[in-house]
Structures are given as structure tokens and as C-alpha cells.
Simulated scan of single mutants.
Amino acid sequence: MSWILSAAEHTSMLAQVNNFTPEAPPGTRGLTKLVQWLMWFVLLSGVSAIIFAGGRFAWEKWHGGMLESPKMVVGALIGGIVATSAGSIMNAILDV
């Protein structure tokens, strides 16, 4: 009978645990700035890749070569979608 009371006591203690939210440790301002710069670079390279693939598409179409640039456009678009939604993806994975 005492183990039932002990189990009930532990269950009530588990119900009192707070739901904590993540917080950046002190001194991470520089790291946050670096991540923001990296995200800017990724977005810039994605836009550049789409512009390059569009120009290559026109070049291939004009000269009658084999069209490989649509794969480049699709790859750049998928990469951009993954890069810009990285924060949402990590929140979905870690929010278990």
C-alpha cells in the first residue's frame, strides 16, 4: 500500500514541472550576427543561381543544345526553399 502512495506522490511532482523555453546564452550576439550573414549569402547565391540558370536556358534554347538548365532552376528553387525554411524545419523536428 505504501508503494501506491509513493507512486501517487511522484506523479504529482511530475505534474509540477514547468515548460521551459529556449534562451540564447550570454555572449552569442556575434554568433547570431554570423548566422544572419550566412543566411544572406545563401539567399544571394540562390538568386544568382536562378539568374544564371535562366541565362543558360536561353543560351541552350537559342543554340539548339540539350536542355539541362531546367534541372538547375529546379535545384536552385528546392535549395532556396530548404534554406529559407531551415528555422521552421528545426523547430518542427525539435518540438517533440
Rank of each mutant, 00 (worst) to 15 (best):
P70T: 10
M72I: 03
R56K: 15
T84L: 14
I4E: 12
A7T: 08
I81W: 12
V96H: 13
P25G: 10
S45K: 09
A92V: 07
V47I: 01
M66S: 09
W59L: 11
P70I: 11
P70A: 11
L77I: 13
F41L: 01
V74M: 14
L34S: 06
A86I: 09
H63T: 10
H63M: 06
G75N: 00
E23M: 01
Q36Y: 03
L34K: 14
S85K: 11
G79F: 09
V35I: 13
S6G: 07
H63G: 06
A86V: 12
M13H: 15
I51W: 00
W62K: 15
S48G: 15
G54C: 05
I50Q: 01
T28K: 07
N91P: 02
G30C: 04
A49Q: 10
R29Y: 04
S12N: 09
A7K: 13
G64I: 11
T84I: 14
G46I: 05
N19V: 05
H63Q: 12
K33C: 04
G46N: 12
I93H: 06
E23V: 01
P26F: 07
S12P: 00
W62A: 12
L31V: 06
M13D: 11
G65R: 15
K33W: 06
M90G: 07
G64F: 13
A15E: 02
G65Q: 11
A15D: 02
G64Y: 15
S12F: 10
K61L: 11
A24W: 08
H10M: 13
W62M: 10
L43E: 05
A92Q: 12
G87S: 08
I4M: 11
A49D: 05
T11P: 03
T32Q: 13
A83E: 01
I50T: 00
A83I: 01
G80H: 03
W3K: 13
S48E: 02
A49W: 05
E68R: 09
I50R: 00
A53G: 01
K71F: 14
G55V: 02
V73K: 09
I4D: 11
W3Y: 11
R29K: 12
I81R: 05
G87V: 05
N18A: 13
S12R: 14
G27C: 01
T32H: 12
N91E: 08
L94Q: 11
S2A: 14
F20Y: 12
M90P: 02
Q16Y: 00
R56E: 05
G30F: 09
A7I: 07
G55M: 04
P25Q: 06
G54M: 04
E68P: 03
W59D: 10
A83N: 00
G87A: 10
M90H: 06
W62G: 03
G30E: 10
G30S: 10
G27R: 08
E68T: 14
P26H: 09
A53M: 00
E9S: 13
E68S: 12
W3E: 12
R29H: 05
E60S: 03
A83V: 02
P26C: 03
W40V: 00
A58E: 03
G75A: 04
F52N: 00
S88G: 15
M1Q: 06
R56S: 13
P70W: 14
L5I: 04
I81F: 15
R56P: 02
A76N: 07
V47K: 03
G80E: 06
N19S: 12
M72D: 08
W3A: 11
V47F: 08
R56M: 15
I89H: 00
E60K: 02
P26L: 05
A76F: 12
L5H: 08
F52A: 01
S88L: 12
